[in-house]
């Protein structure tokens, strides 16, 4: 039994040698193959999903800042009894903050999913001409 195993081992070991020697390469290939469609799928899903999502994000960022600005102004007015003036000022500050929020989140989104570069758009432009 032991002898037969000993005699059988070397050939199987030789077979296993090449099998395992390129195992690392195969794993790498499989991982690459798995990751590539996964990433593509992910970004495609992101692009589709995020139309509504991006709109929602930008909208809430903008409106929230205006509401907070006006709210702070209103409370300051109540406290300092300065009529409507601080509320008006803070409303404008809120608008500015809202624009700032929108610009920041848009920049973030662009960083996360870069818009097509000039090189990628070039064929289209040529077709237009």
């Amino acid at each position: 039994m032991a002898q037969s195993r000993n005699t059988k081992r070397p050939p199987s070991g030789e077979q296993a040698g090449p099998l395992t020697s390129d195992l690392a390469a195969r794993i790498k290939r499989a991982q690459a193959a798995e990751e590539a469609p996964g990433d593509a799928e992910m970004s495609a899903a992101n692009r589709n999903l995020s139309g509504w999502n991006r709109g929602m994000r930008l909208g809430t960022e903008f409106i929230a800042a205006i509401l907070v600005g006006a709210g702070i102004g209103y409370l300051l007015d109540l406290w300092l009894k300065t009529g409507p003036w601080l509320m008006l000022v803070m409303l404008l500050v809120g608008f500015a903050a809202g624009v700032l929020n929108v610009v920041r989140s848009a920049a973030e989104m662009n960083r996360a999913a870069p818009p097509p570069t000039a090189a990628m758009r070039a064929p289209d432009d040529e077709e237009d001409e």
Binding site: T60, E61, V68, I72, A97, G98, L100
Partner: peptide, 20 residues
């Protein structure tokens, strides 16, 4: 002040987005 308002608006936009 703009930065402060922008910072304070975060919890509101965060909560309104989910809720809405």
């Amino acid at each position: 002040p703009i930065e402060v308002v922008s910072f304070l608006s975060r919890p509101i936009s965060l909560s309104v987005r989910l809720f809405a």
